[in-house]
Structures are given as C-alpha cells and as structure tokens.
C-alpha cells in the first residue's frame, strides 16, 4: 500500500530522514514512536507530500508520488491525514467540514454528501453537533470530526500525526476508541503516537525512530516487553516513568 525506498530528507544542515525503508501492507496498522525531533511528523508528512523528499522514492499502491499539480491533488484525496491540531476549517460548520471535500474534490452531489456526512458524524459520535462551528466543540469532538472529514474522502490509507497530544486526558479515550474501531474495520493506518494502549490493542507493528532513522521495528508486544536497541530501551524507560 505504501512503499518508501531509500528516502532521504534534509532541513538545511539537518538530516531529518535517513535511509528510510518502509512497507505498509493493506489493512496494516503501523504505530510510529520515538523521541521529539526524531522525524516522525516529517515521515508522516512525506507520505502525502506535504513535505518533499531529497532522494529515494515513495509509492502509494505501486504508483510513485506525482509532482505538485492535479495528479498529486488526486492522490492526496486518497490519503487521509489527521493532524495534532485538528485543523478543521474554521469558517465552516461541522457538517460542511465533512462535505466540502466530497462535493468540491470528488464532485459528489450535495444532498448525497450530506447524507453520508451525517452517517460518518454519527459513527464518530458527533452527529448532534453538525450545525455548529468547530470553535464551539471540545478538542476531542473536533478531532473526531477531523477523522470523519478524512473518512468522507474514502481514503485508502490514513495518516495520524499525534492525534491525541493536544487533548485533555478525558478526551483522549474517545478519539482512541474511534481509531481502534477504524483499525478493526480494516483501515490501513500510519499513526504517530505515544499512546501505548493504542499500540498494544490496534497496531500490527511498532516502528521506533531516533535521529531520522528507523532504529527498530517489531510487534507491539515484542517491542514493549523486549526492545532490542539501547535507544529504544532508554526511550521506553523515560516514557514509562511518567
């Protein structure tokens, strides 16, 4: 589904992604963890080309990522992205947030998009907020709307960049529950998160990054109980203490 080969990326002198090799199979859920600044967000953002790469190749379903332009826009429609800061369209209602993409990008009739949009809002548990503006919702509700907005495009793969890091503890669960049910429904997902509970329940594989490299990858059980690298052991020690 996603294939990254020999990917290199620099921010000026900083080598943020080094020799990245990654394959994500259809229906697979990959959790990416690692210390701050290790390149997790950058990795995630290169997959739908919000960040360009310097070397190597990225393919989605066997097709290389196109250059900026129409073809890239089409590809992005098939790759959902959920941000740490939700990024709901602030001037649109919750329902409009979910229908804008299908109507404008996919050319779906408005009535159909609204029907489908309400179903999706129902599914993530915020249908009662459909007429409100994003700013009137709690963080957890906003993030669930953002997930519904992505789902409305019927993506083949979804990227999550720390979807719960900006949330109060009591709202984290509602968002994680939504993600777990997505994972169980067979969605292909790449999820940057430090929520080990989520990784253990939903992930097929955990990928540990440090200094721009994928240092280690394993099943969640193996990774958390028996990390192979010094870096991973250090990191797990630190987050387990908190």
């Amino acid at each position: 589904m996603v294939a990254m080969r020999g990917v290199q990326k620099h921010f000026g002198a900083l080598h943020v992604l080094q020799d990245i090799e990654l394959d994500v199979a259809p229906g697979e859920v990959v959790v990416v963890i690692g210390p701050s600044g290790s390149g997790k967000s950058t990795l995630c953002r290169t997959i739908n080309r919000l960040e360009t790469i310097d070397e190597g190749s990225i393919e989605i379903e066997g097709r290389p990522l196109p250059q900026e332009g129409k073809a890239l826009a089409q590809l992005r429609a098939d790759v959902g992205m959920v941000f740490q800061s939700f990024n709901l369209f602030a001037h649109k209602t919750v329902l409009e947030n979910v229908t804008l993409g299908p109507v404008k990008v996919r050319g779906v009739a408005k009535a159909d998009a609204e029907k489908r949009g309400l179903e999706l809002l129902e599914r993530v548990g915020v249908a009662s907020q459909a007429g409100k503006l994003p700013a009137q919702l709690s963080g957890g509700q906003q993030q669930r709307v953002a997930i519904a907005r992505s789902l409305a495009m019927e993506p083949k793969v979804m990227l999550f960049d720390e979807p719960t890091s900006a949330l109060d503890p009591e709202m984290i669960k509602e968002v994680l529950d939504t993600m777990v049910s997505l994972a169980q429904g067979g969605m292909t997902m790449v999820v940057v998160t430090h929520e080990m509970g989520f990784a253990r329940t939903a992930a097929d594989r955990v990928l540990f990054m440090a200094d721009g490299r994928i240092v280690e990858q394993n099943t969640p059980e193996e990774f958390f109980t028996n990390p192979q690298s010094e870096r991973a052991r250090d990191f797990l020690d630190k987050i387990l203490k908190h």
């Binding site: 739908n48 919000l50 332009g69 129409k70 826009a73 089409q74 590809l75 992005r76 429609a77 098939d78 790759v79 959902g80 992205m81 941000f83 800061s85 990024n87 709901l88 369209f89 602030a90 001037h91 804008l100 993409g101 404008k104 990008v105 996919r106 953002a146 907005r149 992505s150 495009m153």
Partner: peptide, 26 residues
C-alpha cells in the same frame, strides 16, 4: 494558520481551490 491550507491540500484540493474555498474566505 498554515494548518488550514495543509488540511485543504490533504483532502485533495488543488492550490487555487485551497485559496478560494479555505484561505481567502477566512
């Protein structure tokens, strides 16, 4: 905020649509 344009692009909006639908109205 930059995130508004990024969200628009990541649901597949081309540059001009991002501008007219999301950035300019705000």
């Amino acid at each position: 905020p930059l995130g508004q344009a990024e969200a628009a692009r990541s649901i597949g909006m081309p540059f001009t649509m991002t501008l007219t639908q999301v950035v300019l109205p705000q």
